[in-house]
């Protein structure tokens, strides 16, 4: 019987080596290893053998089985290399529709993520706002020179406006939240504007503020630098300079080097070499006092930036209107 097995194995291996294609190989597999295959039949004959022979022959059959199987597999692979069926990978895939987030949402999400790592929570506030929260409580009394920069859309003159900035959420937060807190807000703001390629009556702002005992300009600078470096890249040059905003004292502006001209001055940066990115500073003592805090015991910082220009820059959109008029083709 041993000889029979050996012969069968040799015969199988020889036929496998001669095989021309995968169909022939499959036929051989069935002929030897299939349910009624030649080798399988031999297994059935084991019954009549003595115990010691059973062991010996069983091992032999197993070895032969493995050898035949491995040879078929390697021959199959060999045949594939040599010759393959016609296959065209250039055929276009069947379209599968997936949805996309609006560019502004993508930018906001990314910013939220960065600020979460800096210990910030996310809050929101109303868009229809009273003069009190939008201006008065932010150290912007009536007739303040800074008010002309942001002509409001009025719902009721002079007391109800569509918020002109997300700072209105700051005054609401100062009223309701207990320090220490760090929060960011992103949302729609409005202004009286004749709509054109660079100005829209609605725009998005991203704002943050932190109130905590001992918080300083160094913490503000640290948070802003971390944000700028993760959002705009490690290599950007940053300018952190004195700037006036009525809501803060001291106030600071943050500029980034203009990538379009390498700080040489071009139309993008209006010849300045720098792009104004955001405004910031320490929350004005008048504001802190008006919410019942002693500025010497508890301090805070605030920062804010327009989002639309950042979105336009990132997604190479040249007309601000196309962000919000359904022009984006997904």
């Amino acid at each position: 019987m041993r000889e029979e097995i050996q012969n069968l194995k040799n015969e199988a291996l020889a036929q496998i080596m001669e095989a021309k294609d995968s169909n022939e190989l499959e036929g051989l597999r069935i002929a030897y290893l299939g349910r009624n295959g030649k080798l399988t039949k031999l297994i059935k004959e084991i019954k009549g053998l003595s115990d010691s022979e059973k062991k010996e022959v069983g091992r032999l059959i197993n070895e032969s089985k493995n050898a035949i199987f491995e040879t078929i597999t390697s021959k199959k692979n060999q045949l594939k290399v040599v010759k393959r069926e016609w296959f065209d990978p250039t055929i276009p895939g069947k379209k599968y529709k997936i949805g996309k987030l609006h560019p502004t949402t993508q930018v906001i999400n990314e910013m939220y993520e960065i600020f979460k790592h800096l210990g910030f929570s996310i809050i929101e506030g109303p868009e229809i706002e009273s003069d009190v929260y939008n201006f008065e409580k932010l150290n912007l009394p009536k007739d303040h020179p800074a008010r002309s920069l942001q002509d409001a859309l009025y719902i009721e003159e002079p007391d109800v406006v569509l918020r002109t900035h997300t700072s209105s959420v700051e005054s609401r937060a100062l009223e309701t939240l207990k320090p220490p807190f760090r929060v960011v807000v992103a949302g729609k703001c409005y202004r009286y504007e004749n709509v054109n390629a660079t100005n829209n009556a609605m725009f998005y702002q991203f704002q943050g503020f932190a109130v905590q005992k001992g918080i300083s300009m160094a913490d503000l600078k640290g948070a802003l630098y971390s944000f700028v470096r993760s959002f705009f890249g490690e290599k950007r040059e940053i300018r952190f300079r004195c700037k006036y905003y009525p809501e803060v004292e001291p106030g600071a502006g943050l500029d980034l080097d203009c990538l379009f001209c390498n700080k040489k001055g071009c139309s993008v940066c209006k010849g300045r070499g720098w792009i104004e990115m955001l405004g910031s500073g320490m929350i004005h003592p008048n504001i802190l006092r008006s919410f019942g805090y002693d500025p010497k015991k508890i301090s805070g910082y605030a920062f804010g930036m327009g989002l639309d220009r950042i979105v336009m820059d990132r997604f190479k959109i040249s007309d601000i209107r196309s962000l919000y008029n359904g022009d984006i083709k997904y």
Partner: peptide, 13 residues
Amino acid sequence: PSRVLSLEVPKDI
């Protein structure tokens, strides 16, 4: 100077 996370991190709200 520029300082990051030198103060206690407030709770997430």
